[in-house]
Amino acid sequence: MGQNGAGKTTFIKHFNGLLKPSLGTVRVNGVETTKTGVATLARNVGFVFQNPDNQLFSETVEDEIAFALKNFGFDKETIEKRVTWALDFLSLYQYRKTSPFLLSGGERKRVALASVLAWDPETLVLDEPTIGQDHEQKEKLRQFIIQLQAKKKTVIMVTHDVEFVAECNPRVILMRAGKIIANGPAKDILTTPKLLEESSLVLPQIAQVFTKLAHIGLPADIIDIDEAETAILSKAKEKKHP
């Protein structure tokens, strides 16, 4: 997380070798990125860019998803299997013969995602996945990230959507002016006003409420709504039966 121009996108482009460090080393699965190419690194690190229109070009959704698989040299049978799997996983099967350009914004975003997931990379990098997305699309995305985690995938996300981060509750790396200024659980970072303000971010609403309640003995580091509910109810009970 971090404000625009903090260097987030530049930073993550080092994860699949799109950019190489001028000083220092970046290792992906133990291999230095300077010693290998993007095409090799990308097999392990899938990258979904913010704007799906920056990558869609095929005549059908099916072809779009098969593009990377062909580049990576999968055989025909595997390609077919993987494409079907990705279409199903993102509920795009009905559109497989449709042109990606005829789909809505949210659907195009899912096609872009499917086209990367298809080659089953171990790590998935999502650049600003929630921009322009409505509540339901975000909820779908969150469910989808949970599924990936269950499959032991690593998910890296760049965003300044504090509410979405509060819901996902990941490890947060905060960047500012090309440097990492904080690195820790979302619960700690999203409840530190000073850090957030430096990064042009705000506290998530639940945290805002609890910073104002801290002086009556409630914990200040709550970002989750269920936790918030429990904390308040137990405080109220305490009040009734001290």
């Binding site: 509060a166 639940i206 805002q208 409420v209 918030a228 509910e229």
Partner: peptide, 28 residues
């Protein structure tokens, strides 16, 4: 989220008997 939390508390019988909050300040 502030409105949502208010609703959750209300269903749990914790009522503040006021109008629905629209911001964290109001709820706090």
């Amino acid at each position: 989220k502030a409105t949502l939390l208010y609703k959750k508390l209300k269903t749990n019988g914790f009522s503040v008997n006021k109008q629905t909050p629209l911001s964290s300040d109001e709820l706090a």
